[in-house]
Design a protein around this nucleic acid. Structure first.
Lengths: 209, 209
DNA sequence: TTTTATATGTTATACTGTATAACTTATGTT
DNA sequence: AACATAAGTTATACAGTATAACATATAAAA
């Protein structure tokens, strides 16, 4: 939506996004109708279809907007390997979520979570898979896939838990939890798992005789 | 549904459950209509409403049936603290999932995942929270809540990843992954976290002066 | 400023899915 | 065989999606 777009179009799309956000925050996503959104946005019913194919598409647009920023933060976090920087970056993530709490509540509340969540998990997992190149040599492909998936889903679950608990332990504390529970733990598991994987492939080769 | 229930009722409820399962496995849950279910089940449309209030309720009945068994397996797993037993129990869980793969695919595919998934996570978390009584003394309540939530969500995510990857690493290997990535890691994180929590509450007390 | 293009509003309509009512038929129980 | 009740048939009301045709408002170009 650059600046040369018709201002009427920009306004309409914006009020529709805002209407959906305010509705999700106060009621169940599944019970929201397009009519309800257009009424709150104060545009005609048909106007919705002139901009979006479905309610899900509008939701996607809302989430994509904010989630791009989150991925940037996580990428910065993934690059850190030293202990003090890790905790600081972890704190920054939770401070960022605190700021955009509404957006993340929507991410976890909306019913299209199945699709969206998987997409988000895959994006985060890809980030860690890249930054885990040094560790990669010791493990096989399957192990790495499991580890990056584990980190991504654990981080999302931790964020979801935190939101459900009214963001109670402060971001500083959550940064430490992130570091010890998700990163340090996973790194610690690498050695035992890669050893098991080697043993497993050896067994496979032996069994082929 | 005990044996003294009218056999016509038992049959109707059964064919409706079966119809929903077969439909979820071949298409998106959101696009399934009650009419579609009754047609596949070969019962009249109105018959659905004589047994269920909504499509979601039928789904819940299907899932509750199978998930009770899973919880039993997980409970057995949570009670183990010795290394060899832990791996064996972990393997048993993945073997069980392999048997009932359809059911678990439904759990992760259905759109009502938001509600159902949270319910399942809470049930599993409660199991680990109980069995973690010995560890409990060293950490505060918040830490324990985070840890049990972490174990529950990690286990579910691992199961989901495994299903998405056609259950490729064998249950034996997955049992080892479960042990080192989820249990050993979390246990390892307890000490550093409870230390941080103590430090944090000390800071709180100090700040009050 | 007038003209032109296009976004939005209004009204009407077709369609699909949910939900229930009234009545008939089939099936299990006594 | 008689009775109770589950299930089938038909009709209907309603909400939400989706689109068409035409009128009106507004941005951009002349």
């Amino acid at each position: 939506m650059d600046t040369r777009t018709d201002p009427r179009v920009r306004r309409t799309r914006r009020v529709l996004r805002e209407a959906l956000v305010s509705l999700i925050l106060e009621k169940d996503y599944a019970s929201i109708s397009i009519k309800e959104i257009t009424e709150r946005a104060e545009v005609a019913y048909i106007t919705f279809f002139r901009h979006f194919e479905s309610l899900d598409q509008l939701l996607m647009e809302v989430l994509d907007e904010g989630l791009a920023e989150l991925l940037g933060h996580i990428e910065a976090l993934a690059k850190q390997s030293e202990t003090p920087a890790l905790e600081t970056e972890g704190r920054l993530i939770f401070e960022y979520i605190q700021q955009k709490a509404d957006l993340f509540r929507i991410l976890f509340k909306s019913q299209s979570v199945t699709r969206v969540r998987k997409k988000v998990v895959q994006n985060i997992a890809a980030i860690f898979q890249k930054s885990c190149a040094p560790v990669a040599r010791s493990g096989n492909q399957v192990t790495i896939a499991i580890l990056s998936n584990h980190i991504a889903t654990s981080l999302l679950s931790l964020i979801e838990w935190w939101l459900d608990n009214n963001m109670k332990p402060a971001p500083t504390q959550m940064g430490k939890v992130y570091k010890s529970l998700i990163i340090d733990s996973t790194v610690g598991a690498v050695s035992s798992l890669s050893a098991a994987a080697t043993q497993s492939s050896a067994q496979h080769q032996g069994g082929r005789v």
